[in-house]
Design a protein around this nucleic acid. Structure first.
Length: 208
DNA sequence: AGGACGATTAACT
DNA sequence: GTTAATCGTCCTC
């Protein structure tokens, strides 16, 4: 599995996000290996984006977002869930892509064990906190280098261009900057967390 | 020091 | 469709 050059990730989240669709993430946390193929992501553009954790500057929680591209930003929310981002942009500028959903392509038994009540395999990583649970991501994996072959979590495949069948629409679960269509997903993929009724929100369909 | 709220999920009506 | 769970973070006083 080829590791992408770091320079490919040193771009704004809006550019990287659709290209992450189809990319493979592998976790070796806890001596168990799980691999997923990303199907849904969201771009968060740091200081320019009122919905970003980095909008009001650096803090202990979001410090990883301000570092170099290719690292993992994990955060705890709602008192019980962990979610994960791929940090992008140039060093010093906060930019990141939230990993919202994926399909499990290896380590299915481990993924099922981590999500014991899940019936359908397409639900295992359907949602950002579910995805993090499947891969065993939490405080311990915050900041790890996804491009280091020795890292417990690695980004192993990055499509050379935006895959066919990409769709976009408003981000989910935020209260500010709700109008930006900065959520991206693979059309007709059963693992996408919330499929819009219409093919795509008005005018945001990048084409099939 | 206190309190509102959150890049969510599962369970319920 | 609605809501409880549950606590770290950040804003305000």
């Amino acid at each position: 599995m080829p590791t992408p050059p770091r320079g490919d990730l040193a771009v704004p989240a809006l550019l990287l996000a659709p290209r992450l669709l189809g990319a493979v993430l592998t976790s070796d946390v806890g001596a168990h290996s799980v691999s997923v193929r990303l199907t849904e992501v969201e771009a968060y553009e740091g200081a320019l984006d009122p919905a970003s954790h980095a909008y009001r500057g650096m803090s202990a929680r979001n410090a990883v977002m301000f570092g170099p591209a290719g690292h993992l930003y994990c955060y705890f929310t709602y008192g019980m869930h962990w979610c994960a981002n791929v940090v992008c942009g140039v060093d010093g500028v906060a930019s990141a892509v939230l990993l919202r959903a994926a399909e499990v392509i290896a380590g299915l038994d481990t993924a099922r064990a981590r999500r014991p009540k899940t019936r359908k395999d397409t639900d295992l990583a359907q949602g950002p906190a579910r995805l993090a649970t499947c891969l065993g991501l939490d405080r311990a994996t915050n900041g790890v280098d996804l491009l280091d072959p020795a890292s417990p979590v690695r980004l192993e495949d990055l499509p050379s261009r935006r895959p066919q069948g990409t769709r976009s629409g408003p981000r989910i679960g935020i209260s500010r900057a709700v109008e930006h269509p900065w959520r991206f997903w693979l059309a007709d993929n059963p693992t996408v967390s919330r499929t819009p009724r219409s093919p795509s929100p008005r005018g945001t369909d990048p084409g099939r």
